[in-house]
Design a protein around this nucleic acid. Structure first.
Length: 711
DNA sequence: CGGGAAAAGCTTTTT
DNA sequence: GCTTTTCCCG
C-alpha cells in the first residue's frame, strides 16, 4: 500500500478524513511526499476523481514536480487534475471564461518589465513628473492594491499622494484594457472578481473541486487566500501545507497570518505537525530550533531526527571578506578531495552582491561553480524583442509590444514620431497600431518618417500573412529573419552578440518542443506559446550535467538541500540586513531566513563572517551576526585565524581537477580577441577539447581549445 | 544612431 | 567603489 514508507504523522495527514487540514510541515519533514501521497489517497481510497482535485503551488517547478510524482504513484492519469501555480490555474480559468471576465479572447500577459514600461508610459501620458511619481513606486502601489483585491474604484486614498497614485492605477487599468493585456496579478484578481460576481460559474467550480490542496501556504497573500476560499466554498475539503518558520516573503506581500486565519475560518480544521526531519544532523537541528525559538507568535514546532548528532557547526571569523572567501574555498577543496562532490556543496548568502568575492576566490582556486538566480531565458533582451514581434502578430493592439519593436532593430523612427503616435492614440482612445494607421492615412508624417513607418506597417502585415501558413517553430524562425533581429544582433560585436544569436536560435527549438508537446487548451498555437513564455519564465537553461559548487541567495535556497552548506556573511548589518534591523517583524523574518539557510544543510554547516568588509565602497567593521549568538555555544566549533590573511597558493600543483589535454581548470589563458581569462570547465580532449573560459572583459564563453593559448 | 560621460542605484523574487 | 542605466552630443 502507498502508506508503507511514511511515518505516523505523515500517515495521519495522508489518511485524514475529508474536511479541513492544516499540515505544519517543518523543513525536511517530507512535505512534498505527504502532498503527493494525499492526492493518491484521495483518488485510490476516497475514490475522488482526479477531475475533482485542485492543487496549488507557487512555482512552476514545484507544480511540475508534484504532477510527475503523483503520476508515478498513481495508476490513473492525473491529466484532469488542476495542478499548477496560482497564476497558471488562473490563466487556465480566464482562457475558458474570457467572456465572463470581460477580456478579449486572445488577451496577452504582461510580465513585470512590460508592466513597468506601461506604468511609466501612463505616468508620462498624465503629464506627471517621473521624479515625483517614480514608476517603480507606482507599479508597487498598483500591485499592492490588486493583492488586497482592490480595483481603482474601491481604493480609498489616504492622502494627496495616494490620490495621484490611484489616478495612475486607474489610467494604467484603462491602458491595459485598451491593449487587451493583463498583468500577473490581474490573472488572480480577474479570476477572483469573475467568480465573485458570477454565481453560476462559482457554483460550477465549487461543485467541481471537492478537494483543494495548497503548498507553501505561509507564502500566500491576501488575494490568494481570498481566491482559494472562493474556489473552496463552504462544502469542499481544503488541505493546506506550510511552515510559519519558513515564511521569508513577507516583504512582497505574503501574509504569515493566513495560517492563523485558516484556523479561525475553519475551526474544525485538524492540525497535523510534521516534525521528524530526514535531512539534517541532530546538531544542525538543535541549533536551528534554538535560533527560531527566539521568534514570537510561532505556531510551535520542534524538529527532531533519529539520526546521529554529527559534526559541530563550524563558525569562521574572517579578517575581511576575501579571507572569508578563501576559508570557504579551502574547505571546499579539502572536502572535495575527500568525501564530497562539488555539486554537494553550496554557498549561501544574503544578497547577490556577495557572490563576487566568492566567485573570484573560487576562480583563483580553479573550482568550477554555478551561480543561481541570474537572468532567466525568457527575460533576456533579445528574447523579449522576438516575443514582442510574435505578440504584435497575434494582436496588433498590444501596445507594450508595439513600443518595444517600433524601432528595434533601428529603422529610422525617432522619439518625436513615436510621441505623436502616442498622443494620437491617447486622444482617440485607440491602440498605438490603430493610431499609426490613422495618422498614415491623414498624411500626418514628414516624408522620411512616413517611409520608415510604412515599411514597418508593411513588415508586420507581410509577416503575419506569411506566418499564417507556417507551423509554430517555422513561424518563429521566419519572424526572426524577416524582422531583421538576427541581422541586428549579428552586428553586435563580441561575445554578447554571439550569445544573443544562440539564444534566438534556441527560441526556435523552444517553439518546436512546445508544439511537439501539444497544447491542451483550444488556443491558437502562437497565443498558447506566448502565454507559456510569459508564465514559465524558463528555468535558467538546464545546462548539461556538471559538477559545480552552487552559489545562491538564502531566498533561492528555500526548498533545496545540500550535504555541505556554507552560510557566508553572518554579520550584523548584512545579515540581519541593516534595512530590517529596526523593525521587529522584519528582524524575525531575517531570523527565519537564517533558519531556512541552516536547515538546508544535511551533514556539515559552516557559518562565517568578516570583521572588515567593503560595502558600498567603504570599509566597514561589523559585529558577528546576532544569529550566531543565538546558537548554543556547545554546538559550535569556532575558528579564528588572526595572524594574517590566507592567500591562495598557485593552483598549478595543489589542485588539478579533471585536467585533460592541453588546458586545466583554473588555468590562466589568452584569446586573441577576448583577451585574458580563466578556464572554468573542460570537455573532451585534444583538438576537439572544448573549454569554458571566464574572460576578464567579455564574460564566460565556451570555445574550442585550439583558439586559446596558455599563459 | 551610437558611443562615451554622467548619474543613479545598492536586500531578498516568482509569476 | 562598482556596475548599470540614462543622457547628451557629434
Amino acid at each position: 500500500m502507498i502508506l508503507n514508507s511514511l511515518n505516523e504523522a505523515q500517515q495521519e495527514a495522508v489518511r485524514a478524513p475529508l474536511g479541513h487540514q492544516l499540515v505544519l510541515a517543518g523543513a525536511g519533514s517530507g512535505k512534498t511526499r505527504v502532498l503527493t501521497h494525499r492526492i493518491a489517497w484521495l483518488v485510490e481510497v476516497e475514490k475522488i476523481s482526479p477531475f475533482n482535485i485542485l492543487a496549488v503551488t507557487f512555482t512552476n517547478k514545484a507544480a511540475n514536480e508534484m504532477r510527475t510524482r503523483i503520476e508515478s504513484i498513481l495508476h490513473v492519469s492525473a491529466k484532469n487534475m488542476w495542478i499548477g501555480t496560482f497564476h497558471g490555474l488562473s490563466h487556465r480559468f480566464l482562457r475558458a471564461h474570457w467572456q465572463e471576465a470581460g477580456l478579449p479572447q486572445l488577451f496577452q500577459i504582461l510580465d513585470s518589465d512590460d508592466q513597468f514600461r506601461m506604468v511609466r508610459r501612463v505616468i508620462n501620458a498624465l503629464n506627471l513628473d517621473e521624479d515625483k511619481f517614480p514608476p517603480k513606486e507606482a507599479q508597487w502601489f498598483i500591485n499592492a492594491q490588486k493583492e488586497e483585491g482592490l480595483e481603482p474604484h474601491e481604493v480609498k486614498p489616504r492622502d494627496l499622494n495616494g490620490q495621484m497614485f490611484l489616478k495612475i492605477y486607474a489610467a494604467y487599468k484603462e491602458a491595459c484594457q485598451r491593449a487587451g493585456v493583463i498583468d500577473f496579478t490581474d490573472l488572480l484578481l480577474k479570476t477572483y472578481k469573475t467568480l465573485l460576481s458570477n454565481a453560476e460559474l462559482r457554483a460550477h467550480y465549487q461543485s467541481r473541486f471537492r478537494c483543494l490542496l495548497v503548498d507553501e501556504f505561509q507564502d500566500t497573500n491576501t488575494l490568494q487566500y481570498a481566491w482559494l476560499k472562493l474556489f473552496a466554498g463552504e462544502e469542499n475539503s481544503v488541505m493546506i501545507v506550510g511552515d510559519d518558520d519558513q515564511s521569508i516573503y513577507g516583504w512582497r506581500g505574503a501574509k504569515i497570518e493566513n495560517l492563523h486565519r485558516f484556523s479561525k475560518d475553519y475551526p474544525n480544521a485538524k492540525v497535523i505537525r510534521l516534525e521528524q526531519n530526514y535531512r539534517s544532523t541532530g546538531t544542525i537541528l538543535k541549533a536551528a530550533n534554538t535560533l527560531i525559538a527566539q521568534n514570537s507568535g510561532r505556531m510551535g514546532k520542534n524538529l527532531w531526527t533519529d539520526g546521529k548528532d554529527g559534526d559541530k557547526i563550524t563558525v569562521y571569523s574572517g579578517f575581511n571578506e576575501t579571507d572569508e572567501a578563501f576559508f570557504i574555498v579551502n574547505r571546499i577543496r579539502e572536502l572535495h578531495q575527500t568525501d564530497y562532490a562539488l555539486k554537494d556543496m553550496a554557498i549561501l548568502y544574503r544578497s547577490n552582491a556577495q557572490s563576487r568575492v566568492l566567485e573570484e576566490a573560487l576562480m583563483q582556486f580553479g573550482i568550477p561553480y554555478r551561480v543561481y538566480g541570474g537572468l532567466r531565458y525568457f527575460d533576456r533582451q533579445e528574447i523579449r524583442d522576438a516575443l514582442a514581434y510574435l505578440r504584435i502578430i497575434a494582436n496588433r493592439a498590444d501596445d507594450p509590444a508595439f513600443e518595444r519593436i517600433i524601432n528595434t532593430p533601428t529603422r529610422g523612427i525617432g522619439d518625436r514620431t513615436i510621441t505623436s503616435i502616442r498622443e494620437h492614440a491617447k486622444a482617440a482612445n485607440i491602440s498605438l497600431w490603430d493610431a499609426l494607421e490613422q495618422l498614415l492615412k491623414q498624411n500626418f508624417f514628414a516624408a522620411r518618417a512616413e517611409t520608415a513607418l510604412l515599411s514597418f506597417v508593411n513588415l508586420i502585415s507581410t509577416m503575419s500573412d506569411r506566418a499564417l501558413m507556417l507551423e509554430l517553430d517555422k513561424k518563429v524562425e521566419y519572424m526572426l529573419n524577416a524582422s531583421g533581429l538576427i541581422e541586428h544582433y549579428r552586428k553586435e560585436k563580441g561575445e554578447k552578440g554571439l550569445t544573443r544569436l544562440e539564444n534566438l536560435e534556441e527560441l526556435v527549438n523552444a517553439a518546436h518542443q512546445f508544439s511537439q508537446e501539444g497544447v491542451e487548451d483550444d488556443m491558437p498555437p502562437l497565443a498558447a506559446f506566448l502565454a507559456y513564455a510569459a508564465l514559465e519564465s524558463g528555468s535558467e537553461q538546464a545546462e548539461a550535467y556538471t559538477d559545480c559548487v552552487q552559489l545562491m541567495t538564502l531566498h533561492s535556497a528555500k526548498g533545496l538541500e545540500f550535504p555541505v552548506v556554507f552560510l557566508a556573511g553572518c554579520e550584523e548589518e548584512l545579515f540581519p540586513h541593516y534595512l530590517c534591523m529596526h523593525d521587529p517583524k522584519a528582524l524575525e523574518e531575517e531570523r527565519r531566513l537564517c533558519y531556512v539557510g541552516m536547515t538546508r544543510a544535511m551533514r556539515k554547516l559552516y557559518m562565517s563572517y568578516a570583521e572588515v568588509r567593503r560595502m558600498h565602497g567603504k570599509e566597514v567593521y561589523h559585529r558577528p551576526s546576532r544569529f550566531l549568538h543565538e546558537i548554543p555555544v556547545e554546538l559550535i566549533d569556532e575558528i579564528r585565524f588572526r595572524a594574517k590573511v590566507s592567500r591562495p597558493q598557485p593552483i598549478t600543483n595543489s589542485y588539478t581537477p579533471q585536467s585533460q589535454g592541453k588546458f586545466r581548470i583554473g588555468q590562466e589563458v589568452v584569446h586573441r580577441i577576448f583577451g585574458q581569462g580563466t578556464v572554468l570547465e573542460t570537455e573532451g580532449d585534444g583538438e576537439d577539447m572544448k573549454v569554458k573560459v571566464r574572460f576578464a572583459k567579455v564574460g564566460t564563453k565556451v570555445l574550442i581549445a585550439s583558439y586559446l593559448e596558455g599563459k
